[in-house]
């Protein structure tokens, strides 16, 4: 464990908590893409199957359980409890266009051709594009609530911090995982324009408005 990965995990946990609080407190999931939340639930389910097979540490196990439970709780809140506030008119990204390529790529490019490893690889590829429905929704509505942009900033920062973690592990532990690194770079790049808008607007107290 290193400080970059710890900060990354905490940023990830913060994002998930911000989102749950936003939906629970405002009793509304307006401005949130349910499709992205479904993709995240799939990402954690397919990535953390090793909870059943290998024990790495209490921290690792607890965080995986938290991420799985929180992602399903979010999907439940959006599609069941606060379903009336779900913006299905704007949340129209076709997630099959993300799921199928990620699965095909995972079958073609992986570390070893076993069920667990292919599913882990699938979850890595899927996570890198899982935020696209959310960014698509924000671009369609042209704006995002401040709390939603804080959620996105924390979520984007988590994988950006993981990039630093991978640099650290390469130089200090002589360890690297090319599949995770390439997908992590793609994932972070997708946030770039949001990061720019967040830093230039939201941090100055303005609302996140995308140029129409």
């Amino acid at each position: 464990m290193n400080i970059f990965r710890l900060l990354g995990d905490l940023s990830h946990l913060l994002a998930i908590i911000i989102l749950l609080l936003k939906i629970w407190k405002t009793r509304s999931c307006a401005g949130i893409s349910g499709k992205s939340q479904i993709l995240f639930a799939i990402v954690y389910t397919t990535r953390y199957l090793d909870l059943l097979t290998t024990y790495i540490s209490a921290y690792n196990t607890v965080m995986k359980l938290v991420f799985i439970v929180a992602s399903y709780a979010t999907v439940y809140l959006m599609y069941v409890k606060f379903k009336a506030t779900y913006d299905h008119n704007h949340d129209t990204f076709r997630i099959e266009f993300l799921l199928v390529p990620a699965l095909i790529l995972a079958l073609l490019i992986n570390h070893e051709f076993t069920v667990l490893e292919v599913l882990w690889t699938f979850s890595i590829y899927l996570e890198s594009v899982a935020i696209l429905p959310q960014l698509f929704l924000v671009s369609k509505t042209g704006e995002a609530e401040s709390i939603t942009s804080h959620y996105l900033f924390a979520l984007g920062s988590y994988r950006a911090l993981y990039l630093l973690n991978w640099v650290y592990r390469y130089f200090v532990e002589d360890h690297y995982e090319l599949i995770a690194i390439v997908a992590g770079v793609v994932q972070t790049i997708l946030y770039c324009d949001f990061f720019y808008l967040y830093i230039t607007k939201v941090l100055k107290g303005k609302k996140l408005q995308l140029p129409a």
Binding site: I56, W120, Y162, H175, E177
Partner: peptide
């Protein structure tokens, strides 16, 4: 060393 199938990251 390329890490194989024991993924220790979240």
């Amino acid at each position: 060393t390329q890490n194989q199938s024991s993924h220790d990251e979240l």
